[in-house]
Design a protein around this nucleic acid. Structure first.
Lengths: 153, 153
DNA sequence: TATTGTTATACTCTATAACTATA
DNA sequence: TATAGTTATAGAGTATAACAATA
């Protein structure tokens, strides 16, 4: 199936990349107001969803290299948002958990994400927003984008 | 209007950022096969659309800083894809034009973009692809994303 | 004095590879 | 020997600021 150039002059791939970069940048603005980088915010969410996971597991889920996790964990730990202690069953592993402050910040992060979606989709009706979401889910599934994070976010 | 967390577990903003990064990465793969970085490809397209424009004008259209244009123009010129010569009416300006080789490569670049769209949207029907495109155009307009390029592409 | 293009520099982000400690 | 985490280093990409030529 050949896809002609859309009348708008911009291809769907380009629009998607442009809007995606915009959404990521706006999200970065909002997390920065909470004192987090987007990557730190992503790791915080992941630990909230999977308490006790190892740094290696976090690296795999995020699609990052283990050495990158070290700096992120350091930053979150220094701010008192997570704890890192050795596993008793395998002393090579570090188990990551949220602190109370981490849980609290995670809650605020969820509000931020909700605000972000509302702002992004303000030009659409509720029905159109649902349609868009469903189409994007189909694309993400088709391209097997099952990671919890991605480059640039 | 409060937007609840979608049933899929991923917010629309996140999906958009993830798919956008995916589309940008796939596009980078394809342009690399043509010996171009995504930024160089974007500048080539821009010169094709606006022959004779100055580096300053290119910087404004792309949303980049003038010093960044220098390296891109150097690379394209070294490969014989564009020409750069001083304007006769204002010798501060450099006018950018495509060479024959540049025109030819631009044509191949358009095919690449077409392939990219087809691959990205393979999971959708033609009607759904049109719907998606229209919704994305509405969002881009609403957020005034009128630049010809963007960070990361 | 303002503007175009250029250069030099520094900064951010990330990956790679070598190292340690545990298994 | 294999794996988890760490450190040090290097590379890509980009912005900032000072500069020269022209208006």
């Amino acid at each position: 199936m050949a896809l002609p150039v859309p009348a708008s002059g911009k291809r769907t791939s380009f629009l998607l990349a442009q809007l995606g970069a915009h959404a990521a940048a706006r999200f970065a603005d909002r997390t920065q107001a909470l004192g987090l980088t987007p990557a730190e915010a992503g790791l915080l969410r992941l630990i909230g969803r999977s308490p006790g996971l190892s740094q290696r597991a976090a690296a795999d889920r995020i699609g990052a290299v283990p050495s990158r996790i070290v700096a992120l964990v350091d930053a979150l730990q220094d701010r008192g948002l997570i704890t890192r202690h050795r596993s008793r069953t395998d002393r090579r592993n570090h188990e990551l958990h949220l602190t109370g402050a981490g849980q609290e910040l995670l809650g605020r992060l969820r509000n931020v994400a909700e605000d972000q979606d509302a702002e992004l989709l303000a030009a659409l009706t509720a029905e159109e927003a649902r349609e868009l979401h469903e189409l994007l889910v189909r694309l993400a599934d088709h391209h097997q984008l099952d990671r919890d994070l991605h480059r640039g976010l």
